[in-house]
Design a protein around this nucleic acid. Structure first.
Lengths: 110, 110
DNA sequence: AAACTATTTGGCCATTTTGCCAAGTATAAT
DNA sequence: ATTATACTTGGCAAAATGGCCAAATAGTTT
């Protein structure tokens, strides 16, 4: 019974961990407006292209994005449109966590 | 302009990273059914109580859970009920990512 | 006040994650 | 065929995480 829960938690953690990085979130956010090639995302993130490529590979490995190669370029696209809602929710949480005294009433409304 | 995006991505990453661990997800899941004390969560997770305590402190630091001390015990409670929806979404993603050939059509519907 | 219970904190080591550079692969252009 | 372009992969050092034990803290009970 608990083994199943543990397994599910591990699976979820894999996906969530893949999102848990500023550069990867930046990519996901950009991709929500439409597909982008690696060079564009690299420019946006401001890191080495090899670094960004690895970040994207990770997102891909958990299914958060899909890939399509056209000519020399590789275009990445989000696979989970609902992320937008979730991100806003995280933003709300973050701001309430920042407020001087965090009280129970500050819970999110989503 | 981009500096603001970077900052927001960093903030989001902090919150999401806090969720990105099997034990912490297990705790969040349990807490969705109602508050729990550290001992209960420790029992559920199956790690040292000091380890679980640190996991909970992290969740608390980003505002994902709130705390209430009553007597000797400390009760943790989720601050963001919408997590349930999000987790299901992650589950869907994970299963489609697992399916033999991952195609664009396998995108989530949430 | 002493002993006990529930939880947190401090260290410390093992493991994982990041990021850059260099090298490799694939497709296109000359 | 060569050269160029767009990415990916391998390798390695630096930084961040995770987990246990021991010690400290806070609140209870005797």
């Amino acid at each position: 019974m608990s083994a199943q829960r543990q397994a599910r938690a591990a699976t979820r953690a894999t996906v969530i961990k893949a999102m848990a990085h500023p550069s990867r979130l930046l990519c996901l956010e950009a991709l929500m407006a439409g597909e982008r090639c690696v060079a564009d995302l690299t420019n946006l993130v401001g890191a080495d292209i090899s670094t960004v490529s690895k970040h994207l590979a990770l997102l891909r490995s958990v299914g958060l994005v899909t890939v399509e190669k056209r000519g020399l370029q590789v275009f990445y696209q989000i696979a989970c449109p609902c992320l937008g809602t979730f991100f806003e929710c995280m933003d709300d949480l973050a701001s309430s966590a920042r407020s001087s005294k965090r009280r129970a009433a500050a819970r999110c409304q989503c």
